[in-house]
């Protein structure tokens, strides 16, 4: 059976206004990512890869073109609806972890389920934290955890809402090699076991190669190539 299209992008252009005038960051991007596929977006700094990730995840509104997440037409929705779609389809892992400093590890992981009103949030979070090897750190605050541990909590949080698509922005960027490796293994394991589509922005060619496909951003344009 043919796999469904998870993300479909057509003629995506994005322009921002800066002090020096309008700046076009993305220029007519077309792409399609299939369900359960893992895709790496690579490119030099300032090439527009983070902007693309933000638009794909509905964190910002594109200037022109269309983005579809499954059957949802992202680019024409209000922030209210986009948030609902994110809650339904999307999970995130960030370079700087972005755990809420005022919440314990378990509470951070519970958040996505709680937002959906899930009464089993705590039990699910416990299971996920156990999967990432942090069952002994449930009630620790982010500043009491190491970088690697924080990123593992972030991954547990990302999978807490059973996302169909996981966006990862430089997930190993702030970690040492050993921790980075651990995180990557965890990410791909969970990705496979849950059948999640993975879209990852990275500088790390080794990491990019682990994905099914690699897309290269250069001066706001996208080319597909094998590394």
């Amino acid at each position: 059976m043919a796999r469904k299209t998870a993300i479909k992008v057509a003629n995506l252009t994005h322009t921002v206004t800066s002090n020096t005038g309008d700046l076009t960051i993305l220029k007519g991007i077309n792409m399609e990512i299939l369900e359960s596929e893992s895709v790496a977006i690579v490119g030099s700094s300032g090439s527009g890869k983070s902007t693309l990730l933000g638009l794909l995840a509905g964190l910002d509104v594109n200037t022109s073109g269309d983005i579809h997440l499954y059957d949802e037409h992202f680019s024409s929705q209000t922030e209210e609806t986009r948030a609902l779609i994110r809650g339904q389809y999307v999970g995130f892992v960030f370079q700087s972890f972005h755990l809420l400093p005022s919440l314990q590890a378990i509470e951070n992981v519970m958040l996505p389920a709680e937002l959906k009103g899930d009464k089993q949030a705590r039990q699910k979070a416990e299971v996920l934290l156990e999967k990432v090897g942090l069952s002994h750190r449930l009630t620790h605050y982010p500043n009491q955890l190491s970088g690697g541990e924080q990123q593992r909590v972030a991954i547990a949080r990302a999978f807490a809402s059973n996302p169909k698509i996981l966006f990862a922005d430089e997930p190993t960027g702030n970690l040492d090699e050993e921790n980075g490796k651990l995180i990557v293994e965890l990410l791909f394991d969970l990705n496979r076991s849950q059948g999640t589509t993975l879209v990852m922005v990275t500088h790390d060619n080794g990491l990019a190669k682990m994905c099914d496909r690699q897309l290269v951003m250069s001066s706001g344009q996208l080319t597909e190539q094998s590394l």
């Binding site: 809650g87 999307v90 937002l115 949080r157």
Partner: peptide, 16 residues
């Protein structure tokens, strides 16, 4: 600020 942005990425709507 960052807490709200993170909550939004996790699916919290402005109305919520």
């Amino acid at each position: 600020l960052m807490q709200v942005a993170i909550l939004k990425t996790l699916g919290a709507t402005p109305a919520l």
